[in-house]
Write a protein that binds this DNA or RNA. Structure first.
Lengths: 373, 373
DNA sequence: GTTTCGCCCGAAACCGGTTTCGGCAAGGGG
DNA sequence: CCCCTTGCCGAAACCGGTTTCGGGCGAAAC
């Protein structure tokens, strides 16, 4: 039967296909079972007002009983809605957010699945790749909106999505927030509060180890640090500030630089816990003892901070909650909410542990050591 | 105009919708521009053999020029293929794989996007939730197959997917691998090699700190440990084995238990780097010095192992490569490959650093300390 | 010079939903 | 009693692709 070669022309280079056995129950099945038109069933299920309450009840019950689940992409094709949130991770640099990732994903995916949405994640090598990946997901309409973590002051991702009119929400702030929804933790306030705390303990020579300056958060945290120092009339010479410190080894190097100063600081504020963990090592090498003659306060609240020696005093961010908030806000944005109304700033919470004590280094005998309540 | 209330009945409780402005270019646009039928364009693009080579070229070029990107879910509805891989993370317990997550996701998503597939991730609280989430994703046809990390000896996820005839691949092995594709690292061989190494250095009293015994990997690593010990004729009394150690604090507790023994081990093998890091603390508290009078070998290759003091000798797994392999194998499985042929076992690679030296504890003067080449 | 293939492509059905449009029947007002 | 609403639902178009079916046409075979 040579006719077979004409029938069913199969694509080349594609193997046999594993077909799922039992056919799923479609909306037509439900309609037939009820003697209704499938359009009616669809409208009943989607809450259109032109369906009688009794009918709606009949339909929802039958759908439930028959185990009907609408096919996501069949709806998507007409509604233009994939019911998926997008997240593009930069796997290139910045190990900084690795520890949070599980919590972050969990927060997002939990909030998303509450509404039967899902989370699509992709990774990119560098910034250009990141933008390209966003474009691809948009082109294929795989996702309805994006969460953009680690925002920069000038962020090409924002430019792309703004131009394409795709909904998005920032985790962090940016230079020009026009038309942007965002959620962020008030790192600047945490830095300022940390300085208040150190100043109240009598410190006046305080170092600062900051994160990646290309990111907005680093700018904000430095501002918070500088503002609080100025408010207390404390000097902030450039040699006391190290920036672009993202990892433990970098933190160690930065710490050594500060501690080897002719007049080393008695307290050091770190914008990242990882930097602080590196600083611990630097202190050990420099013969200083954190919690005794060197006070350290940090920011992030990674689990390792609790089991460090001494336990690290840090301003913790609830990454899971952040993920949940971001997902919920993005959903609102996708559903048409005005981005300008979707802006939330949440404080970091202080977890006071032992590292910010430094009784052996009460620095300035001239300055009065104020008592704490 | 009361007629408006009859026109366009909008669903209740759904706000205004942000519509994308410029309409995308569809397959019909391409067909019209070329004067072809859209079916022809589709077949040309998908490599059907009944399209002339010249036509195929014309079509692909035009599609490229016009910026045509097929709409993922429009294809999915007919082909039954969402072009998405699924991954359900258990956010409940087991902090163990947190450090790898970024690399893992990166590996998967990289291999997936090579073929224009995407990765959908969801999280679950516990095992039941995990199975429910898998079911939901399958019901909505959001994904075409799953990667199942952290497999157990008896794994309900496998039962579900097997029953539903959904393609999947295990990261790890399981008791009954019938019809399962899997990829795994040969942890048992690594454990055995570690024992060989310690034995060659003269150790004969060796402790073992294992991971979570509900997982297959722990069973395998214990088997590897026991087999190698037996092969060398070394005793393995129960008090030298601690199991279900997943975190740094648990590792510290386990270490203390071993080091406080009347006759403590001179070397300890850990199934997880995190356990070893905890053991470091236990050693410090017990007055033992890792790399001097206590040898430690571990497994995983987390970054912290390199910067620990002393640097940790460990058998490293390339998590990114694992993700890539898993994704590629799952794609093959989805495309119909026989699961029994999709089974890959890869060795862990030894990263020899300082922690497995213990010159001050050469244990048995009676036994000949063999020389290493 | 027919007949027979076989290569290519057009036309149309189909996938599983959503949305529009129109009409029937009941109810209300004049 | 008739007409005009109004509520409610059926029928069909539509979304953007994929796949089937069949036919036109040129070349090889007879």
């Amino acid at each position: 039967m040579t006719a077979d070669t004409r029938q069913m022309p199969k694509p080349v280079s594609k193997g046999p296909v594993a077909r799922p056995g039992p056919r799923r129950v479609t909306i037509s099945d439900v309609a037939d079972a009820l003697g209704l038109a499938k359009g009616t069933v669809s409208r009943a299920l989607n809450g259109y007002p032109d369906i009688a309450e009794a009918t709606r009840l009949r339909v929802t019950r039958a759908a439930e009983r028959m185990g009907y689940r609408p096919l996501a992409q069949a709806q998507a094709i007409r509604t233009g809605r994939a019911r998926a949130l997008g997240l593009v991770l930069n796997a290139g640099r910045s190990d900084a957010h690795k520890p949070f990732l599980t919590d972050f994903l969990d927060g997002i995916s939990r909030a998303a699945s509450e509404e039967s949405w899902t989370l699509t994640v992709a990774t990119a090598m560098d910034e250009a790749d990141e933008v390209a990946t966003l474009g691809r997901l948009v082109d294929e309409r795989k996702v309805d909106g994006f969460i953009l973590p680690r925002t920069k002051l000038h962020d090409p991702r924002i430019d792309l999505l703004r131009e394409r009119a795709v909904p998005f929400i920032l985790y962090g702030r940016t230079a020009d927030p026009t038309g942007c929804a965002w959620f962020d933790i008030a790192g600047e306030e945490a830095m300022a509060a940390a300085i208040d705390r150190l100043h109240a303990a009598g410190h006046w020579r305080i170092g600062f180890i900051n994160g990646g300056t290309e990111y907005t958060y680093a700018r904000l945290r430095r501002d918070g640090f500088l503002a609080a120092m100025a408010r207390h009339g404390l000097p902030t010479p450039p040699e006391l500030i190290v920036e672009d410190v993202l990892t433990i080894p970098q933190g160690e190097a930065a710490g050594l630089r500060l501690l080897d100063l002719p007049e080393p600081p008695t307290a050091i504020l770190c914008a990242l816990d990882l930097a602080a963990l590196g600083l611990y090592r630097a202190a050990a090498r420099a013969g200083r003892r954190v919690g005794h003659d060197l006070a350290v306060i940090s920011y992030d609240g990674i689990p390792e901070a609790a089991t460090a020696e001494p336990p690290l005093t840090t301003y913790a961010v609830d990454t899971r909650a952040a993920g949940e908030n971001l997902a919920r806000m993005l959903l609102a944005r996708i559903r048409g909410a005005d981005p300008e109304t979707l802006r939330v700033l949440v404080p970091a919470v202080l977890i006071a542990r032992g590292s910010d004590r430094a009784p052996d280094a009460i620095p300035d005998p001239a300055g009065p050591a104020r008592q704490l309540a």
